[in-house]
């Protein structure tokens, strides 16, 4: 199979399966999988490509969600413009925060992001309550106007929009893998000094990656906002800070399909188990431990080599030279 054909097959097969699943799976479940996979793609890029582990993703999710909510509650009615407003606020927020945060490494980076999520939560819940309506949140479902072609105010239109966004984001990250910037990110993760000695400005690489990933998280927040027509401080809750990291690891850190597989498994387990028992978090946590013990490379990280062998997807290895 040619390289270009493989590239397209890589997108069309998994997302084609999801598109077909639209008629099989419950619609809210599919929407949640699609949005959560976008959210996880951001975390997967940070962790798998740049080596940043962030427990502050809810802060960026909320930045996008509130950007959308402010626009749709106070200014306009078009959900597409609302999503653009969310993207812009996520971009601006992560660009400013990134100037400071990307100077930090490993555990400090993780914790300062967690602290950011706590700060954003309190800002939205208390400090900015006059405009965010505190815990009551902002409701704008009935303010949104219909959009042409895909009506985002209707779940059956929104699901296709979310599908398109997920395909686009996935394709963006896949394309990035083949660029010099993608290689720079991976090189920064492996050995930052050597990147500098090659003549690259390491800070700019980390900052760009940080902004890109967190704008993606904000996009997921915007999608949540438009889908539910409601945004509350809970979105920035530190209690949910580990979710994207867990799903990234569950799916397979640094793999392209990991976020999709991880989101499918996580949301699936959550829905399945919560339908049977009340304290679903306990059982989902237990299942996660078992899955991770079984294969520390995550679901896709474990499956991929097996699938490659099974269907010989792997390109022929270069001949060894004497």
């Amino acid at each position: 199979m040619s390289r270009r054909l493989r590239w397209w097959a890589g997108i069309l097969i998994p997302f084609g399966v999801l598109a077909v699943a639209r008629w099989v799976l419950p619609l809210p479940f599919l929407v949640e999988v699609l949005i959560f996979s976008v959210y996880t793609m951001a975390c997967n890029f940070l962790l798998g490509r740049v080596g940043f582990i962030s427990f502050g993703q809810p802060a960026y999710l909320a930045a996008g969600a509130y950007g959308t909510a402010f626009y749709l509650y106070y200014f306009g009615r078009d959900p597409l413009l609302g999503i653009l407003a969310g993207l812009a606020s996520g971009l601006l927020f992560s660009a400013v925060v990134g100037l400071v945060f990307v100077r930090l490494r490993s555990d400090y980076f993780a914790l300062v992001n967690l602290a950011l999520a706590v700060i954003v939560y309190h800002l939205m819940q208390k400090v900015l309550a006059p405009i965010t309506k505190g815990d009551n949140g902002l409701w704008f479902l009935d303010r949104m106007t219909s959009t042409p072609v895909l009506d985002l105010t209707r779940p059956d239109g929104f699901v296709w929009f979310a599908w398109l966004v997920a395909v686009a984001v996935w394709a963006l990250y896949k394309a990035l893998d083949d660029t010099v910037f993608g290689a720079c990110c991976l090189a920064t993760k492996t050995n930052e000094d050597k990147v500098k000695f090659l003549g690259y400005h390491d800070f700019k690489i980390r900052w760009t990656a940080f902004v890109l990933a967190n704008t993606t998280a904000a996009l997921a927040g915007s999608l949540y906002g438009v889908y539910f027509g409601f945004v509350s401080p809970e979105m920035a809750s530190a209690a949910r800070a580990a979710d994207p990291v867990v799903v990234t690891i569950l799916g397979g850190t640094g793999t392209l399909y990991g976020p999709l597989v991880g989101a499918l498994a996580y949301v699936g387990m959550k829905d399945l188990v919560s339908g049977v028992v009340g304290n679903w978090e306990f059982f989902v946590g237990l299942l996660l431990v078992v899955i991770m013990l079984a294969g520390e490379r995550g679901i896709w990280g474990t499956l991929e080599p097996w699938l490659r062998r099974r269907w010989a997807w792997r390109r022929p290895a270069p001949a060894l030279q004497e």
């Binding site: 991976l186 090189a187 000695f197 090659l198």
Partner: peptide, 22 residues
């Protein structure tokens, strides 16, 4: 370091570690 490198002064480190994932 990146400015020095851009001036054409290249440093080949001792550790022999290339970017392993690339």
């Amino acid at each position: 370091p990146y400015e020095v490198a851009r001036m054409g002064i290249r440093y080949v480190q001792q550790d022999k570690r290339v970017f392993a994932d690339l």
